[in-house]
Design a protein around this nucleic acid. Sequence first.
RNA 1: GCCUGAGUGGCGGAAUAGGUAGACGCACAGGACUUAAAAUCCUGCGAGAUUCAACCCUCGUGUCGGUUCAAGUCCGACCUUAGGCACCA
Length: 801
Amino acid sequence: MYNFRKIENKWQERWEKEETFKAKDDFSKPKFYGLVEFPYPSGAGMHVGHIKAYSGLDVIARLRRMQGYNVLFPIGFDAFGLPTENYAIKTKTHPRIVTDKNIENFTKQMKKVGFAFDYSRTIDTTQESYYKWTQWIFLKMFEHNLAFRDKTLVNYCPSCKVVLSNEDSQGGKCDICHNEIIQKEKDVWYLRITDYSEKLLEGLKDVDYLPNIKLQQENWIGKSNGAFVWFDLTNTSDKLKIYTTRPDTLFGVTFMVIAPEHPLIEKNKDKILNMDEINVYREVTRKKTEFERIELNKEKTGVKIDGILAINPVNGKEIPIYVSDYVMLGYGTGAIMAVPAHDSRDYEMARKFNIDIIPVIDGDISYEAYTEDGKMINSGFLNGIDNKKEAIEKMIAYLEENKIGKRAVQYKMKDWAFNRQRYWGEPIPIIYCDNCGMVAVPYDELPLKLPEIKNYEPGTNGESPLAKIPEFVNCVCPKCGKNAKRETDTMPQWAGSSWYFLRYIDPFNDKELADYDKLKYWLPVDWYNGGMEHVTRHVIYSRFWHHFLYDIGVVPTKEPYAKRTAQGLILGPDGDKMSKSKGNVIDPNDIVDSYGADTLRAYVLFMGEYSKESPWNDDAIKGVSRFLDKVYNLKDKVNDKLEYSKNLEIIINKTIKKVSEDYEAMKFNTAISALMQLTSSYAECDEITKADYLVLLQLLCPIAPHITEELNELLGNKQMLVDSKFPVYDASKVLDEEIEIAVQINGKLRDTIKVKKDATKEEVLALAYESDNIKRHLENKKVVKEIVVLGRIVNIVAKDA
RNA sequence: GCCUGAGUGGCGGAAUAGGUAGACGCACAGGACUUAAAAUCCUGCGAGAUUCAACCCUCGUGUCGGUUCAAGUCCGACCUUAGGCACCA
């Protein structure tokens, strides 16, 4: 094996000394901004997943540099967060110390793998000079009424003593400690991301994200078109406002359902005859988490309200109202019109409570709801229409004309719960004053620093540890000068990661978040790669912040990322997700030590399709290692005096084409295959030219930068390979003179023939008929059709004579 | 339940627009080199039938149908599996 240790150390030192990958603000050159999701610097160090994520874009960044772009490829650390804090609680070590140690370790490891990062721009979200601007953005949002407090039922983790967003508590369990969460009423900070629903949806039209990523974003926003309808009630002057996507089925409404928390109940409690029964049901519901309400409650439950009926505005029918937990207060209006004939949930509910089912669309409803399209029946003025869209439009027009409803759009996305009762996060820069209410910390007092603290455990009542420090809590109101108290909650980890890519552009600016001209040059991020698990939350949160910053004139683009891709997971050798408990974790350090960084990089890119998950295989690394050895050993075949080798011309051009196209599509596995084949072709020659060898090195350089730089130097080249021009193929030299094509009879392969690349249809056919095997198969048969696809295939259709 | 992927040799995986299924790699087997081993190099490697052997032939990309001269690829139904979302009205 070649001496990878010596070679890799040498080039890593040289890159560092010469600041090879330091991005320059040279506005005259075309730019490329490549971004990878910055890591959380955990104590465990780097994971092979990080290697795959960074290697992929490292290839692209080096490629773009070789194509003449001014490249920015930065790295940093998303260092606030719970694991560090929990570690601090356990070991009584300050999170600052733990964080610094972990960052140092990560940096050392990343350098050993030879990523072309610009380390001079490294930022970490816990630096005061960084979170000053995170707080600044928050205050701007507060100023624009996008940060607000609200009393709501929240997901509360009794163990972590923190409030969690819905996204953090999926499965009814705390994302961090995995204990059960409960519902608790609390004052919560929200960011009004819902104000940006439409913009975030619209913006997707202008970006190049992988289709499934785009789809996930769309689903998260969850736009639906429908209508509000107001139902009159008996016994009360109140009206019941509902939201529906199917106003066309209004004639089929046989009952209404409202959420147990619906204010109508409390307001009309003196008119409801079975308040006790309803209260019991509401109490049961209250104890359920949102997850349980939607996930475990397969069997419909509910209570019919006695004393109040609803009146269907289109036909005047009086219908019952039920309270049921399958309707959520947080979506739509917290009340629905139920059409059991054409909605499966309503159908179940009607079956359980023996409610009428009236079909309004012609179809079979004997076993289940009919949810397909069809002809309208039992529907007054809609009868006979068999187009859903037309029926909906006609109904909306009717509703609006009679002022009993109107067209409406709803979004699934909810506002973003933004506070945590934790120490290791950005303090929320707000002051509570008895006189003035909520007051922002003045901008010139930012950053509002995290105070030194001895005990990191949360307060007893679910309060932040900061609440226990009087020197922090007690302050003076910036407005009136009277004594006041500070907000003691901190921001979630997503805050810092929502804008970090902006700071890389101008990391040392202490006047503003980043210089506008620099932002104008570098934005948008041209290519952002990261994990599939972040494509909904992180990407949408950071897009939201970016849209906001655009609206207030801080950044020059609406969208932050022009292109987003995601890499697939590396599974353990057993095919399961890697985890400490399963003991199937692969440590990248071990691989670097025994095979070298180039082999590790090439292997993670070779193991399968980049965007898909594939299991780790210790044996398979050998194949990649052997390949690099072969490339290395080829150096002995180079003959300086040899000038031209025509026999390799075609395969070289083919390979350049294949590799260039594959890199763009992140099909690194097939690019490496092609390079392996080129290497084999070289190995078959007695000698190769310098130029031919250089092409191989250049094509391989983005994947295996150390060994290729070394070999380039051995060739006598002074200029670094990464500064050379990436090869371009000659389109006239990618096809062999003679190509092999298949000859089929009735679709079955019977022979292959060699033809000239520009052979005509007649020539090809003539050759095909000359084949003995073809002749034999055509005996006693009559040819009825001949299909020739030039360059590909001949198919002769023959019947028994 | 809904949405989105995926299902191809012993294994990881290839296969622009339908056009020679199994590239490339691993493992395995045989051979060369070696005192020997490792390393390296060469050859073979989907299953089956037949044959001294080769050619040749049959079957084969989760299952069942369909479209087509031709289907891993397109269409329909289903099964398995991964991820995401969720009584979202």
